[in-house]
Simulated scan of single mutants.
Amino acid sequence: MDADPPIDPKDDPRSVDDLFNAALCEPDEDLAWDAVMALHWRGTREILDRATALATSVCPLERRVGAEVLGQLGCPARTFPDEARDILARMLETETNADALKAAIIAMSHQDGTEGRRATLAFREHPDPEVRWAVVQALSTLGEPWAIAGLIELSRDSDPRVRDWSTFGLGAQTDVDTAEVRAALVARLDDEDAPTRGEALDGLARRNDPAVPSILRERLSRADPDQFEVEAAGELGDPEFLPLLLALRSAGWPGPSWALDGAIAACAPAPMDTPPARPRP
Rank of each mutant, 00 (worst) to 15 (best):
V181K: 04
L101H: 03
L154S: 02
V58M: 02
M108S: 05
T178K: 01
E180R: 03
T141S: 14
R161F: 09
E125V: 04
R124I: 12
G74T: 03
A179K: 13
E144V: 09
S109T: 13
H126F: 07
G169E: 02
A107Q: 05
D177T: 09
V131C: 02
T114I: 09
Q72S: 13
L61G: 04
E153W: 04
I106M: 12
T178M: 01
V131A: 08
W133R: 15
Q72H: 15
C75I: 01
T167K: 06
M108I: 12
S57W: 08
L139M: 15
E180T: 08
I87T: 03
V65F: 00
L151Q: 04
C59E: 15
P145Q: 10
G66V: 01
V65K: 08
K102R: 14
L61M: 07
V135P: 01
G143N: 14
A98P: 06
L139F: 01
G150K: 11
D99E: 14
I148Q: 02
L170S: 02
L101P: 12
R78M: 09
G66R: 06
T52N: 05
D128S: 15
E115P: 00
D175A: 11
L88I: 12
V176L: 06
P160L: 08
R132L: 07
F80C: 09
V181D: 05
T79P: 11
H126K: 07
P160G: 01
S140K: 14
P160S: 06
A67V: 11
G71H: 01
T120C: 15
T174A: 10
L88A: 06
V136A: 09
Q72P: 01
A89P: 08
D112V: 09
R118C: 12
R117I: 09
S57C: 02
F168E: 13
L151V: 09
